[in-house]
C-alpha cells in the first residue's frame, strides 16, 4: 500500500499556513497526527497535490486561566489532553473522552483538531465539547472567526470550515459554578473500538435549593453529529436530581437520539445504550457535585 504522490509543505508560522491554504485551497490537505489522513490517502479517498504539515507550527498547548477558561491548540495531542492536570480537574469529561480514543499510539499521534475537523459521527471529543459550550477559532488570511462547536460540525464528516481556513484552537468557557461533567462511550472492546454510542453530560446544581440549574446532554454515534437532547435537558432543569428523575431523563435521551442500524449495532440497541450511559453519567456527575 503506498500513498499517491504529493508535495510536502511544513510552514513555521501561522501566517505562512494561512497563505498556503489561500493559494492551494482544495488542492491541499492539512496533516496533524495523520491517523486519519494517511489512511484516507492510502485508500485514495484523498489525492491532494499538497500536504501541509502542522508540526512546526505553534498550534499545540493547553492553557487554563480562571475567568478566561480553557484554550486547547488544534495540534494538541489527545494524549496531552488525557493527561492534563487542569483538564482532569476542571473538565473531566474531556479527559475521559481523550482517554477512550484509539490506542496509546493513536492518542500520542492524533490531535483534537483532527478529531473535530474530521467530524466522524462517533468521534469522542465532540460530545463533551458540546456539553461544555466549546467554541472553535477558524483562521485564514481574511482573519479569525469563532463558532460554537455545534455550528462547526454540520453533518457526517462535514464542517463549516472553508478551504482557506484552519482550525487554530478550541476554547471552553469556565466551568459552571457547582457543576460536573462526565463522558462515557460504549463499544464492544476496551481499546481500538468504534463507539456504538456515547453520552456526555454537564450539570450544575443550585446549592441553595438542590435543584438542577443548568444541564447539557450530548450523544455521540447516534446521529450524523454529536446531538443534544434538548427535551431531556429542559425536563431536568429545575428538578432535584433524584434517582427517579435521572431514570426518567435517561429514558428521554434514548427517545431523542436518532440512531441507525449498522454493522456495529441496531438502532434500538443504541437507544437502550444511550439510556444506560445517560443514567450512569448523570448519577456520576450529580454525585461529584454533592
Amino acid at each position: 500500500m503506498s500513498l499517491p504522490p504529493f508535495e510536502y509543505l511544513a510552514p513555521t508560522t501561522t501566517a505562512d499556513l494561512a497563505g498556503l491554504l489561500a493559494t492551494h485551497r482544495d488542492k491541499c490537505r492539512v496533516l496533524a497526527g495523520g491517523t486519519d489522513l494517511v489512511n484516507w490517502m492510502a485508500e485514495k479517498i484523498y489525492r491532494p497535490d499538497y500536504v501541509i504539515d502542522l508540526r512546526k507550527l505553534p498550534l499545540s498547548g493547553i492553557r487554563y486561566e480562571p475567568g478566561r477558561g480553557l484554550t486547547i491548540g488544534a495540534a494538541t495531542t489527545i494524549e496531552a489532553i488525557e493527561r492534563s492536570p487542569e483538564i482532569r480537574r476542571f473538565y473531566l469529561a474531556l479527559a475521559q473522552a481523550a482517554g477512550q480514543i484509539g490506542s496509546p499510539q493513536i492518542r500520542a499521534m492524533a490531535t483534537i483538531g483532527g478529531n473535530c475537523c474530521n467530524a466522524s459521527p462517533c468521534a469522542d471529543m465532540p460530545p463533551p465539547l458540546v456539553t461544555l459550550e466549546a467554541r472553535v477559532v477558524l483562521t485564514s488570511t481574511r482573519g479569525s472567526r469563532e463558532l460554537a462547536i455545534e455550528e462547526f460540525i454540520t453533518g457526517n464528516r462535514q464542517t463549516a470550515i472553508q478551504p482557506d481556513e484552519f482550525l487554530e484552537c478550541v476554547r471552553v468557557p469556565d466551568p459552571w459554578p457547582h457543576s460536573a461533567c462526565r463522558y462515557s462511550p460504549f463499544g464492544l472492546r476496551a481499546a481500538q473500538e468504534i463507539d456504538i454510542a456515547s453520552v456526555a453530560v454537564n450539570v450544575a446544581v443550585d446549592p441553595a435549593t438542590g435543584a438542577v440549574s443548568k444541564a447539557r446532554i450530548a450523544m455521540g454515534a447516534v446521529a450524523p453529529f454529536a446531538m443534544r437532547a434538548p427535551q431531556a435537558e429542559a425536563q431536568l432543569v429545575g428538578k432535584k436530581p433524584t434517582s427517579d428523575v435521572i431514570d426518567e431523563i435517561a429514558i428521554q435521551c434514548g427517545r431523542e437520539c436518532r440512531p441507525i442500524d449498522d454493522l456495529r449495532a441496531s438502532a434500538s440497541y443504541r437507544r437502550h445504550i444511550v439510556g444506560v450511559l445517560a443514567r450512569r453519567m448523570l448519577r456520576d456527575a450529580v454525585a461529584a457535585i454533592a
Partner: peptide, 24 residues
C-alpha cells in the same frame, strides 16, 4: 494503525510507523 506491530518511539512517544510520513 490498528495492530501496533509497527510501533517505534519518536522523541520517546509511541508512534505508528505505518501512519507516519518519513519526511515528517
Amino acid at each position: 494503525g490498528d495492530c501496533g506491530t509497527c510501533t517505534v518511539l519518536i522523541d520517546g512517544r509511541r508512534t505508528l510507523a505505518c501512519l507516519t510520513l518519513a519526511i515528517a
